[in-house]
Amino acid sequence: MPIRPLSPVEARVLGTLMEKARTVPDSYPLTLNSVLAGCNQKTSREPLMQIAEAQAQEALDALRGLSLVIESSGGRAARYEHNFQRVYGVPEQSAVLLGLLMLRGPLTAGELRINAERWYRFADISSVEAFLDELHERSAEKGGPLVVQLARAPGAREQRWAQLLCGPVAMAQAAAECEAALPGAGEVAHLQARVEALERELGLLRETVQKLCAELGMSQGGQS
């Protein structure tokens, strides 16, 4: 039976648990405070979020109801760990890619390979692409695709991938966000004008050097 789409906060909480299980295993499972700190950290997150403690607890409880999170009691505070691979029935490599996409937003295969270094070391981009293709072609019996390849944005060399755990991706919105990150027409025109000005200055400098060399009876490559 397919799992309902996750909310953005649930995806951030789940992705954080998946990340910390691999990057700080000595501190795992996590307390609520650790989950909250991981969700709200300013690095390796897109978009940045400011989740309140009550929101994080609500998301953990909801994920526990979906069997995606397991709560363990011990010590002073409850601790939480993810159960992602068992519920979705995917291998570790696929779970790593989905976790990264939940935390960082759409990424290219190359960006996924680089950002996965602390989670799992992929041999090459082809390996990443193979697991993405497998997630994209996932059968309906298994719950359907878990990733989608976005249309190539203007000026971009590679296509990005997005996760579908939070439901269908708004293709137009994703393309617009990517296009907005590219230099605008005004910025391109400004850069082009600067390049042309530098080329003119370089031409003038060359003429000056040629005149000086002629007056001194020197060749441009050295003395005559």
Rank of each mutant, 00 (worst) to 15 (best):
D133Q: 15
Y80G: 02
P154Q: 09
V9N: 00
L68G: 05
E58K: 13
V9W: 02
A176G: 01
V147W: 05
A116N: 02
Q223A: 07
G155A: 04
E111F: 05
R160H: 06
A95C: 11
L68I: 11
S219W: 11
L198R: 13
R160T: 02
T23M: 11
R200N: 10
E134C: 09
G15L: 07
E134R: 15
E141W: 15
A54G: 10
A185Y: 06
L198V: 08
K42N: 12
Q220L: 14
L212E: 14
G99C: 10
Q50A: 13
E46P: 03
R138V: 14
T208C: 09
R64A: 07
L212S: 00
R206F: 10
R104D: 00
E158A: 08
S34Q: 11
P25V: 08
Q149W: 04
S72N: 03
C178G: 04
Q192H: 09
A54Y: 13
A78Y: 11
F84M: 13
E199G: 01
G222R: 13
S219P: 04
L112S: 04
V9T: 10
E46T: 06
R79N: 00
H82E: 13
E117W: 08
G221T: 10
A185I: 08
S139K: 15
Y88S: 00
R86D: 05
C39A: 08
E196Y: 08
T108Y: 00
L132F: 12
V24R: 14
L112V: 07
A172H: 09
P183W: 06
A37F: 13
R104A: 09
G105N: 04
A59M: 04
A180C: 06
L66W: 06
E207H: 08
L68Q: 03
N115C: 04
R104M: 11
R4Q: 10
M1N: 01
I114H: 06
P145M: 13
P5D: 03
N115V: 03
C178F: 09
R76A: 03
C178R: 09
G74L: 07
P145G: 11
G184C: 07
A156Y: 02
V169T: 02
Q192D: 12
A109P: 00
C178H: 12
A189E: 14
G65D: 00
I125Q: 08
L191E: 14
V147A: 07
E187D: 12
S7E: 03
G167Q: 07
A193W: 14
A123T: 04
A153T: 08
E137R: 13
G65K: 07
R86G: 09
L63N: 05
A56Y: 09
A151D: 08
R64G: 06
R121P: 00
R104G: 00
E46R: 03
E179L: 02
V188H: 07
G143R: 10
H136G: 07
L48C: 01
S27K: 15
A95G: 04
L101G: 01
Y80D: 05
S224D: 14
L164V: 08
G217C: 02
L101Y: 00
G143V: 15
H82D: 07
A151H: 04
A21H: 06
M18I: 06
I125A: 01
G217K: 11
V195R: 15
Q163I: 01
E179P: 02
L63T: 00
R113H: 00
